[in-house]
Design a protein around this nucleic acid. Structure first.
Lengths: 218, 218
DNA sequence: GAAATCGGTTAAGAAAGTGTTAAGAATTAG
DNA sequence: CTAATTCTTAACACTTTCTTAACCGATTTC
């Protein structure tokens, strides 16, 4: 089920929201400050954030700026238009004022999850897991030793799993790691990655799309 | 610039919104009824819809259900929670009640345009779906394997569905992919695409317009 | 109605892209 | 500084795709 992070220091409202969400079978993750929220987002898979603005430690506006690629719905007592507009422009996807209506909240959550379904990214694919912290890729729980360029390539392919990544785009995305990697180099890297995967499984992971680029196999 | 479709029959509000949008350099397309809105959406490229609910002809709720893949912001005098929740659940991405605040409207428009930039774009026509991210075309949910030139041709025809694309225009549009493709090559490509489609369905998709070019069949 | 043009199909050779290997250059680690 | 690792380059065999050109029927033009 979808997991929703509640960032709210007022215990009464926090628990009210939590109850509403759990009734709808969402997985709820609790946090009571801006810094705690960022800590959670760094470690756990979160599909959506419900964010209060007036928070101890780091305020909501700062949290908004630091969150990328996860939809945020602000639930705030701040009714001023300026607060609302700033939150939306800085990265929030929606803004509800307290007191909010339960059904409207649930509907707006559904809207954001509906939209983000198409953007969702995770670094797992079939039996492959890419662990960012350990900088290691596993297949069937066996680690494969990749060079940093190979790792960067695989990470980009996993980030865009099921999508075709053009050769030029791939080169652009890994250009932080490698200065003069061209299409010829790229195909050698891909070949090397495939060989390392073949050492563990016969299953194909990287598919070539003729004339365009590569993608993770279906 | 981004083009925004206003669907609003009240001339005063319509022009008010139009002025706000044009000040922000958006391209505005006008429509004054639900049926007119659908007609426009069928023909023109629209990035976002601003939709009133109480409309002559086809009401806003019906318009919401028929629009796919374009973000909708409802601007309605209906303040009831039921109206709001129904619109959001049926497919609207946001809901503002009249009277609305200009800055909030602009902020919420920016949110939707920001989000939709990341959303997987798909071109659909009859039982054909072209998935840009996957670089794949499906007919009746079966994928057909196209070369990059064939894909480029089909994409252009789908982008201009219902319109005739002249041969020279088509060659120009795909010239990024193929350097020296002439009209003779083009007709071979078209023939190959048709053959691949015929492998799945007897229905015709690409129609020739004598002496002019091609278009998707009606 | 004959000639010219256009459209659809086919097949073959030309062109472009891919996968692999190996060697030398560049980088990193000890 | 040396050794090990990694990266790029280049060559090759191979596959896929693209263009060319020919053929034939349909359509238009004269």
């Amino acid at each position: 089920m979808k997991s929703i992070l509640i960032v709210e220091d007022d215990m009464y409202i926090h628990n009210l929201i939590k109850e509403i969400l759990e009734n709808e079978k969402y997985t709820v993750i609790d946090s009571y400050s801006g810094t705690e929220a960022l800590r959670v987002l760094d470690k756990e898979k979160v599909d959506l954030v419900l964010l209060d603005l007036m928070l101890p430690g780091l305020n909501g506006e700062e949290v908004i700026k630091r969150v990328k690629d996860i939809p945020i719905i602000v639930i705030s007592a701040k009714v001023s238009m300026d607060s609302k507009v700033q939150a939306l422009l800085n990265g929030a996807n929606d803004y509800l004022t307290k007191p909010f209506n339960k059904d409207e909240l649930l509907a707006r959550i559904k809207v954001q999850l509906r939209i983000s379904k198409n953007v969702n990214k995770k670094l797992e694919y079939k039996d492959m897991i890419l662990d960012e912290d350990k900088h290691t890729v596993y297949i069937k729980n066996k680690s494969i030793s990749l060079t940093k360029t190979e790792y960067a390539i695989l990470k980009q392919l996993l980030l865009n799993a099921e999508q075709v990544v053009t050769k030029s785009r791939l080169l652009e995305l890994i250009s932080d790691y490698t200065l003069d990697c061209d299409e010829n180099s790229l195909k050698v890297h891909i070949s090397n990655i495939r060989r390392k995967i073949r050492n563990i499984t016969d299953e194909e992971y990287i598919e070539s799309v003729w004339g365009i680029g590569f993608k993770m196999c279906n």
